[in-house]
Design a protein around this nucleic acid. Structure first.
Lengths: 232, 232
DNA sequence: AGAAGGACCAGTGGTCCGTA
DNA sequence: AGAAGGACCAGTGGTCCGTA
């Protein structure tokens, strides 16, 4: 394990960008001296050495991240759960890792990635951010997209789904619809919507979102054309 | 084999974009009725049925394209050779195939390529352009780049190398140097140079060109810094 | 049951090297 | 010898499904 991550965020100081270097996958070393922002967001106690409420956690075999729950904006998840602010923060962390990979590539005259690629995930892992992985990030990209494109709507959706006690899967499904609405208002070009947004442009457009936009456009076009043809 | 190619170029009429549908790989059918632009450029006689100067060509076993020779701008290659105007024309054909692939992708709501990818080469082959292949196009990309970026210099280089009787490989090697010069005048960002040029942006920057630019920049930077340090 | 992520797979960018 | 291109290979985008 290199310590690229420390270099990455060392100049942040008191900015709003949180530091990682939290939850180690291994339980070899402890550093509990006052949880930092990412730790506070993630509700992950490093190495679980305190054994506060569970017993069999002490053998240090838990590797997986705590599952996400639907939280309101600003709300910290309680229990062995992670909140949605933490989820969105992972996307910002990936963006920072990409920027580092880009800087290294430019400096050494290599091909420079414009997206969060396998190379970036590998780099994040090497830098100690073992809690970042490709399937997870791809799974929630469209949720992050809604958060970037229309934070008001995203926040409202979170509150409603929390209120109803819905699980993360339901909330995730519900994020598609407002995105399709946004696309419909912008000529259906979801690729353009992603590529012109400063934080979103580094993420591949999820297949399902693209399909939903296309299906909805086709369906509305068919409705329009049939109303022209038959309903004068 | 579909006939996408015919659709592709059917609306060209008398424009300067040449038609393909020339030199078939198989020798099953002949169509010799007045060579079109691509045929004239390529100096390829379809199926070689005339057997004009060689004997064993009649068995119809030649598959490979005629090799390139260094020609002046506007010059048609003689003998079983192809000229450089024809080479550059292949890049324009690839661009047209990419545009078709993009149109199909957009219409069916699929991911839309921005570069000449494997998919585009496959499409070109299916459309009957069997004379287009990836290794060849990648091999000469930087030559085409010079042609796009500084046609004067490119033309002058062709004349000099033809005059000297140099082979295609030598000419190809010689194309790197003026490109590095161009990069040096534009902040060494060869990726930016490619991506901001309308015809060039669809081609990947060749590895060797990127390496040469980086090496030359590093070497000049070292020279500058040592002159600062030691030569006051 | 709901969710996290290791690991697989088809098709990619890149180009070598057996071929003519 | 010089050159064209089939075919291979390491690493990609994408996501399934065995796991907890």
């Amino acid at each position: 394990n290199t310590n690229y991550a420390l270099d990455a965020f060392s100049q942040e100081g008191l900015s709003e960008e949180p530091v990682q270097q939290v939850h180690e996958g291994t339980c070899s070393k402890r550093k509990q001296r006052g949880k930092n922002v990412a730790a506070r967001l993630s509700n992950q106690t490093v190495c679980e050495v305190e054994s506060d409420d569970e017993e069999d956690e002490n053998v240090c075999e838990r590797q997986r991240e705590h599952p996400f729950i639907v939280t309101e904006p600003g709300e910290v998840a309680r229990g062995k759960k992670n909140g949605l602010d933490y989820l969105f923060n992972l996307y910002e962390q990936c963006r920072n890792f990409l920027i580092q990979v880009q800087n290294i590539a430019k400096a050494s005259g290599e091909k420079c990635p414009t997206k969060v690629t396998n190379q970036v995930f590998r780099y994040a892992k090497e830098a100690g951010a073992s809690y970042i992985n490709k399937p997870k990030m791809r799974h929630y990209v469209h949720c992050y997209a809604l958060h970037c494109l229309d934070e008001e709507t995203s926040n409202a959706l979170r509150r409603v789904y929390k209120e109803r006690g819905e699980n993360v899967g339901s909330w995730r499904q519900a994020c598609y619809k407002p995105l399709v609405s946004i696309a419909s208002r912008q000529g259906w070009d979801i690729d353009l919507i992603f590529s012109t947004h400063p934080r979103l442009s580094i993420w591949y457009v999820p297949t399902k979102l693209r399909q939903l936009c296309h299906a909805e456009r086709s369906s509305r076009a068919a409705a329009t054309s049939s109303s022209i043809n038959y309903c004068g």
